[in-house]
């Protein structure tokens, strides 16, 4: 097992440049150049100095209102987005589980996507072949393994995504609002698997609006507000404070439309 923290982030800042009415076509871009109309450029800081250390076996929740920088944070840990300032060190293989799927190619079948995901994470064909059966088994695909994934039901899609993410032996698992779909039985299986994963020294970073899920899974929680850490600490305290601040008299605060 790796020594030292799996994730070490110091004073992370991320700036996005938003181009209002940016030209989406080459033709537009040329016309603009000729007519000397400029694109309005606006920059905003999604993260304004966030630090986080995650040790093997840790489960960390990230909560905060929309636009507070949660997803950006996850994108940076996943090495998908580039930090603007600050240092980010991530050790080991990272699996990302966002809304629907781990990044499937819609035209490919379940099996093909398993191979593709494995190859994207840097596994060899043989390593993936050894895991295919357990993935299909875990996702409960029942003869749909050779169907293009765009034809799968949303439940199957998410199950397959979860199965792929946890079976490709990542060191870090990033989860963004996914456990919302699927039935109770599958949720149970996921929880079991996540616990096992942490016991074996993996780390989970979990982004959610659903406080019960955060409370159930995460030891520690980071509350982001406007790109800054508003509060960090043991989950029950942080969640209680968050609920008091954001949803004081909202009894159904954890019910929302599933994404998609």
């Amino acid at each position: 097992m790796a020594k030292g923290p799996l994730i070490e982030i110091r004073d992370l800042k991320k700036r996005y440049t938003v181009l209002h009415n940016r030209p989406y076509s080459f033709k537009d871009a040329m016309v603009r150049k000729l007519t000397r109309r400029t694109v309005e450029r606006e920059t905003f800081w999604a993260l304004k100095g966030v630090s986080l250390t995650v040790q093997p076996g840790d489960t960390v929740g990230i909560i905060g209102p929309n636009g507070s920088g949660k997803s950006t944070m996850l994108g940076i840990i996943a090495r998908i987005l580039r930090p603007t300032e600050g240092t980010v060190e991530v050790r080991g293989r990272v699996s990302v589980l966002m809304e629907a799927g781990v990044g499937f190619h819609e035209d490919l079948t379940g099996i093909e996507n398993i191979y593709l995901s494995g190859a994207l994470l840097g596994l060899t064909r043989r390593q993936i072949a050894a895991r295919v059966d357990s993935i299909v088994e875990f996702a409960d695909l029942h003869g749909f393994a050779d169907t293009p994934v765009r034809m799968l039901s949303s439940g199957m899609y998410v199950r397959l995504g979860f199965a792929v993410a946890v079976h490709l032996e990542p060191n870090i698992l990033l989860v963004d609002e996914v456990l919302a779909v699927g039935d109770e039985e599958f949720h149970h299986k996921c929880r079991q698997r996540l616990r096992e994963f942490c016991r074996e020294g993996g780390a989970v970073v979990f982004v959610s609006h659903r406080m019960p899920e955060v409370k159930w899974l995460c030891q520690r929680t980071l509350w982001l507000e406007n790109g800054l850490v508003h509060r960090e600490g043991p989950t029950p305290e942080v969640v209680a404070a968050y609920v008091a601040a954001h949803q004081p008299d909202e009894p159904n605060w954890d019910i929302e439309e599933p994404p998609g």
Partner: peptide, 11 residues
């Protein structure tokens, strides 16, 4: 064509 993958996986 790999939009889905590019947004969700680092490779």
């Amino acid at each position: 064509r790999y939009r889905n993958v590019v947004k969700k996986v680092a490779f």
